[in-house]
C-alpha cells in the first residue's frame, strides 16, 4: 500500500510548500532594489546601498535594542515560570490540574487582541506605568506556554526512576536538580527559550496594547508597523524585515536541532 504518491498530489504538496516560502524570499530580493518609492517588480536595478543606509539610520537602533532587551527578559521569566509549572504538572496529581493546563494555554489560544486589551485595562489597576516592563509582562505571559510545552514533554520522557535513583544514592533535592534534572532538561529548556525569544522578538499585537506611547517603548515590530502604515524609505524597511527574519529564523532552527532526537520536537505547537 505504500505506493508512490500520484503526480497531482506531489504537485499540490510542492505548490503548498512553495506558497509558504516564496513570499519570504521576495523580501530578500526587495532589500536590494534601487526603487525607493514603489514595489515595482522586477526591480529596476540592484544595489547594496540600503544596508549602509539602514545601518546609519538613528531611529532603527533603539527599537532593535529594546526588542532584544524585551525578548531576553521575557524569555528568562518564561523559562522560570514555565519550568516550575512543568515540574509541578509532571509530578503529583492535584486538584485543579486540568484547569491549570487550560490556564497556561489561554494566553496563546485566545486571539492576541484579547490578551492585549485585557492587559491594557489591567495594568493601570496594578498601578504600573506603561513602559518596557509592561511589554515584558505581556510577552512573558504568552511565552510561558512555549517553555512549558517543551519542558513537560521532556519531563514525561525522563523516567522518574533517575530522580529516585539520585535520592537513593544520597543526593538532596538541590543536588538532584543540579546534577540530574537540569542536564537532562537542558536542551528542552534551551529549545523552549529559543522559541520564546523568537516569539517575543517579533510580537506586535499584544505589544501595541502593553507598550507606552513614548519612543522609549517602541519595539522593532512596532517600528515596522509604523513604516508599513506610513512608509518612508521602503528599501530600508526591507532590510530591517530581513534582519528581523534572520533574528527569529536562527533560534527556531537551533531549537529544532536541539530536540529532534527525541519524540517531541520543538515548535509543533505554537
Amino acid at each position: 500500500m505504500r505506493s508512490e504518491a500520484s503526480w497531482p498530489l506531489r504537485i499540490a504538496a510542492l505548490a503548498g510548500l512553495l506558497f509558504l516560502h516564496l513570499p519570504i524570499l521576495l523580501i530578500f530580493l526587495y532589500a536590494f532594489t534601487t526603487d525607493e518609492r514603489t514595489f515595482t517588480f522586477p526591480p529596476p536595478g540592484l544595489t547594496t546601498q540600503w544596508f549602509a543606509v539602514a545601518w546609519n539610520r538613528a531611529d532603527i537602533w533603539p527599537p532593535l535594542m529594546l526588542s532584544l532587551q524585551v525578548a531576553l527578559f521575557s524569555t528568562l521569566l518564561a523559562l522560570v515560570l514555565g519550568t516550575l509549572v512543568a515540574a509541578a504538572m509532571s509530578g503529583a496529581r492535584f486538584f485543579g490540574r486540568d484547569q491549570l493546563s487550560l490556564l497556561i494555554v489561554l494566553p496563546i489560544a485566545l486571539p492576541g487582541v484579547i490578551t492585549g486589551i485585557a492587559l491594557r485595562s489591567a495594568i493601570p489597576m496594578l498601578h504600573l506605568n506603561f513602559g518596557w516592563q509592561t511589554i515584558v509582562l505581556g510577552h512573558a505571559t504568552f511565552c510561558i506556554v512555549i517553555v512549558y510545552n517543551n519542558a513537560v514533554a521532556r519531563f514525561r520522557r525522563l523516567s522518574g526512576g533517575i530522580l529516585e535513583a539520585s535520592a537513593d544514592l544520597g543526593a538532596n533535592a538541590f543536588q538532584t536538580f543540579r546534577y540530574i534534572l537540569l542536564p537532562n532538561l537542558g536542551t528542552a529548556l534551551l529549545a523552549g527559550g529559543m522559541l520564546a525569544f523568537a516569539l517575543s522578538f517579533d510580537e506586535v499585537i499584544v505589544t501595541t496594547f502593553t507598550a507606552g506611547t513614548g519612543a522609549a517603548s517602541k519595539t522593532l515590530p512596532i517600528w515596522m508597523l509604523d513604516e508599513l502604515i506610513r512608509p518612508r524609505q521602503r528599501p530600508v524597511t526591507n532590510v530591517v524585515a530581513m534582519v528581523v527574519f534572520a533574528t527569529t529564523f536562527l533560534p527556531i532552527l537551533l531549537a529544532y536541532y536541539l530536540t529532534r532526537e527525541g519524540s517531541e520536537t520543538a515548535g509543533s505547537g505554537k
Binding site: 516560502h21 523580501i27 514595489f39 517579533d202 515590530p221 524585515a241 527574519f245 527569529t248 515548535g267 505554537k270
Partner: peptide
C-alpha cells in the same frame, strides 16, 4: 522544517512580504 519555519518566522515580515 518547511512548515515549521514559516509558522515561527516573523508575522509582520510575512505580512510585509505580501504587501510587496
Amino acid at each position: 522544517l518547511g512548515v515549521m519555519l514559516p509558522l515561527w518566522s516573523s508575522y509582520l515580515v510575512k505580512v510585509y512580504a505580501w504587501k510587496l
